[in-house]
């Protein structure tokens, strides 16, 4: 019984090993090496943690913090925006119109990531239509100065990653279904109580999926930061890319990449623990164990 099942899993394992474990293994291996002279990219005859020390220099550390800030704020904003939108789509809109709305959410995805981001560069430019428009209606006096700042990067990532939040969230909300919400209301729970005690708990896997799907690629994104961030909106992804491509220092680039992966994994773990602790009082308030008959 065991061997055929194992055999069926071989392609999946092979895929994982060839395209994930091996490349990541190389990156980790390189990160302990060094750049041998101007023309070499990496050497591993002497192993050390020196590249990590180098990567954690104050300038790089500042970029790490910046990346973490954009990652957390971007993910939070995506969640905050997606949540009411998805609630409306999955709960309020009639089922026949949902397909169209999902298609509308997906349309930006049909265009290239880079093109979409450059679009925002045009919009946010000090002489762009947004700036002119805001000046005309009197909201703003003088040119809009957010291009090449962290705010611009944030706007860009929210725009780029929002569909990745909306889709899993929608699937999760949709699967909760009207009957359970109706049962909740029938039992005296208003819309908010129903959301808190039925819809969100049941949609939790989808919410987690959405958060991870946005947070993880967002932390490693370098296109958005390059196009909209300039010098003030630097992200680690850009540094890694420049070490590999411009500086040709694969060892340092690898150390930065490893640190980035560690930061991502650590953030996710810390986030999970914080959420778990925060949910404890809520859980115990709603738990009811009657125990065996007395």
């Amino acid at each position: 019984m065991r061997s055929p099942r194992f055999a069926l899993a071989i392609p999946a394992w092979a895929w994982l090993v060839l395209f994930f474990v091996v490349p990541v293994g190389y990156v980790i291996w390189f990160s302990f090496g060094y750049k041998p002279g101007i023309f070499g990219t990496h050497a591993n005859d002497v192993l050390s943690f020196d590249r990590y020390v180098e990567a954690l220099s104050p300038t790089f550390f500042q970029t790490f913090l910046n990346t973490l800030w954009v990652g957390l704020a971007g993910t939070a904003l995506c969640l905050l925006i997606a949540f009411p939108v998805v609630y409306w789509m999955a709960v309020k809109v009639s089922p026949s119109k949902r397909g169209l709305l999902i298609a509308l959410v997906m349309i930006p995805f049909w265009t290239n990531f880079l093109v979409r981001t450059i679009g925002w560069q045009v919009i946010l430019a000090p002489e762009g239509w947004l700036s002119t428009g805001l000046n005309t209606i009197g909201v703003l006096d003088g040119p809009l100065e957010i291009l090449y700042t962290r705010t611009a990067v944030l706007i860009g990532v929210v725009y780029n990653y929002l569909p990745l939040m909306i889709l899993p969230l929608f699937v999760a909300f949709d699967r909760v279904g009207a009957p359970l919400r109706e049962a909740s209301k029938d039992l005296g729970a208003g819309p908010i109580a129903t959301l808190a005690r039925v819809t969100i708990p049941l949609a939790r896997p989808g919410i987690i999926a959405g958060v991870l799907l946005v947070f993880i690629p967002l932390m490693g994104d370098y296109i958005t930061a390059t196009v909209l961030g300039g010098a003030k909106g630097n992200m680690v992804g850009q540094l890694v890319a420049s070490q590999f491509q411009t500086a040709q220092n694969w060892a340092l680039g690898s150390a930065m990449a490893v640190l980035l992966m560690l930061v991502i994994a650590l953030s996710v773990a810390i986030g999970a623990v914080i959420l778990w602790i925060l949910s404890l009082p809520f859980r115990s308030a709603h738990r009811l164990v009657l125990g065996p008959e007395s």
């Binding site: 359970l180 109706e182 039992l187 005296g188 049941l202």
Partner: peptide
């Protein structure tokens, strides 16, 4: 609205909350 009416429903598909125990369902 339904949550302010002094009526309760037994649904055809039961609509029990899958994330709650039997007692928690009844306590809802």
């Amino acid at each position: 609205p339904p949550y302010k009416r002094d009526v309760n429903t037994v649904f055809q598909a039961y609509a029990l909350f899958p994330h709650m125990s039997v007692a928690e369902n009844v306590a809802y």
